[in-house]
Design a protein around this nucleic acid. Structure first.
Lengths: 146, 146
DNA sequence: TTCGATGCAAAGCGTTTGCATACTG
DNA sequence: CAGTATGCAAACGCTTTGCATCGAA
């Protein structure tokens, strides 16, 4: 999904395109990356030294409501955000020592017997599946940080 | 795992058995239940009106360090705690409308080709897999709360 | 010119910590 | 009796909100 397209979706939602908003969109580039609000804030401050963290949060929430981005939970208390999209669904490997994360192209829902959920009358809207452990660099010195 | 056994593990860890601590252990009963710190606090206040939430947190952390309980992340910002144990590994169905949660006896790791992780040199320590959606009571009126 | 967006400051929420006191072992 | 556990209050980190001002359309 191109940046231009994202801008169109914001406009259609009745939102204005401000420089700050444009810059947040640029941060995500063409997808595949996920950042915390703080990381996005730091990045944007290069161009707009006065942007406030509140503005970043407000815009991330707006974009999430429009379905433009998704929030990820990595168990460390802070959200990560990444571009949403049908083709981009994926899970993550997360290093609990250095924080590195990597995409995983395996979705466990494919293996879940759907009759099980039908029996329980449960309608799945979304799911989490993340693997926490030690990456190749950290697997030698296993000691969880923080 | 019985309550008595849990008390023994605390004692072996050099910890004292205080009434508050005993009561927290009782909360978990024989397992299969998960509560937030606040829920445990409310429950214990029935017997000890003066227990502080801090004490609950401190004890939950102690028990987590001893491997007695595990913390769960349900994407709503607060942790849930449940008894740990090799036989008790499971995942959850979580209703995003009423908050109900139910155990799921399906673990996606069984289906993940282990050679994939070996190639990536990633050592898995733990993983998340939770299904978020609408339970049988809420599936009629789908509207996320909060 | 209008109404949404911003920056600032303050508050919210779950959780943690410092300290003096209370109590287990 | 020694040293851990407690309650209280304050602080923490991430996120949200109120409000006056600014600026996109």
């Amino acid at each position: 999904m191109s940046s231009v397209c994202l801008v169109e979706r914001l406009k259609k939602g009745g939102y204005r395109i401000t420089p700050q908003r444009q810059e947040i969109i640029n941060c995500f580039g063409s997808g595949g990356k996920h950042y915390s609000a703080e990381e996005i804030h730091q990045e944007i401050k290069n161009k707009f030294p006065n942007v406030s963290l509140d503005t970043v949060y407000r815009n991330l929430n707006t974009m999430r409501e429009l379905g433009i981005i998704e929030a990820l939970n990595f168990e460390d208390g802070k959200c990560r955000y990444e571009l949403a999209g049908e083709n981009s669904h994926h899970h993550h490997l997360i290093c609990i020592r250095c924080g590195m994360s990597e995409e995983l192209d395996f979705c466990p829902l494919k293996f879940l017997d759907s009759s099980l959920l039908r029996d329980k009358k449960f309608t799945v809207e979304r799911h989490s599946f993340e693997l926490y452990g030690y990456c190749s660099s950290c697997t030698g010195s296993k000691r969880e940080v923080k």
